[in-house]
Nucleic acid binder design. Sequence first.
DNA 1: GTAAACTAGTTACAAATGAAACCAATGTCA
DNA 2: TGACATTGGTTTCATTTGTAACTAGTTTAC
Lengths: 159, 159
Amino acid sequence: MSNNEGFVLRLESFLPYRLVVAASLVSQATARTYATKYGIGIAEWRVIAQLGEFGTMTAKQIGARSHMHKTKVSRAVALLTKKKMLAKRANRDDKREAFLSLSPVGLEVYESIAPSAQALSQRMFGEVSSEDRAAFERVLDTVTARAAALADTGAELPD
Amino acid sequence: MSNNEGFVLRLESFLPYRLVVAASLVSQATARTYATKYGIGIAEWRVIAQLGEFGTMTAKQIGARSHMHKTKVSRAVALLTKKKMLAKRANRDDKREAFLSLSPVGLEVYESIAPSAQALSQRMFGEVSSEDRAAFERVLDTVTARAAALADTGAELPD
DNA sequence: GTAAACTAGTTACAAATGAAACCAATGTCA
DNA sequence: TGACATTGGTTTCATTTGTAACTAGTTTAC
């Protein structure tokens, strides 16, 4: 029984809530897999994925493309460097930054983990029809844009 | 340029990644709004939302329905109790648990925040067509189920 | 040329989080 | 009945996270 006569919010069908719950489960499942099979976390994996896709980037570029806070990137890079998965090359023209890329070891990890990630995704989204998948992507796009705007303008709610 | 000839994962179109990014932005926007306007966090809001919807629940029930870890529920309940937003009534039949419900203050908060939350959701999902929204919900459902299964079985990746 | 403003990245600190230990109460089963 | 396992909930502890301060390097404006 609900204890108020006015507006009642049904949380179970409230989209922002459902989205966040789904993402958190996906994230858990993913983290668990990467951790148990490769001994790295999601942040590290994202760095590897970016470098695997684009070859060479600065930490800043990685952060921008992967939507990660710069401290997170910094720590992920430090860890991956310690694990010899990354090569760091100084930029002669701007000594503040460095060019990062996958070392042979890192590349190996990437080549083994990327198809696995794809397979995991397949397990989660595999039985979705392609129409639904397309719609899903459209919605993700608009929501991402809207939420990003709301998140960093700190916009007030309408009354 | 990519630095490997084999399989390349395009992170920007990788669904689990996009889902998690979208959710994190939604979560940020939401948290910011609740925090600035009501001085509570997402966990606290979820507790309030559950109680607003269902009236009276134990901490355990709240955790189960809202997908929150029991320590998180415990802390949220403690905070809300300190803020006089919750009423706690002992269960005579099982003194380990207690029945929680919204106090008059808590109910006020709920009645003011629930429509705001709805409005915020509207801002994020408002321009989505109802077909896309339906598809989106279908996908969320299947993904939630699949990810939950993967997350707690600790299933291995296929090779 | 140089002082002030700015930027890439790291570090220090504080808050949030989850796993595990814990406490009190309840259930089980001999 | 009484030992043992289990459960609701809290607390402790170690880890993760983000904010803010900081360092080193670069750009801008005079």
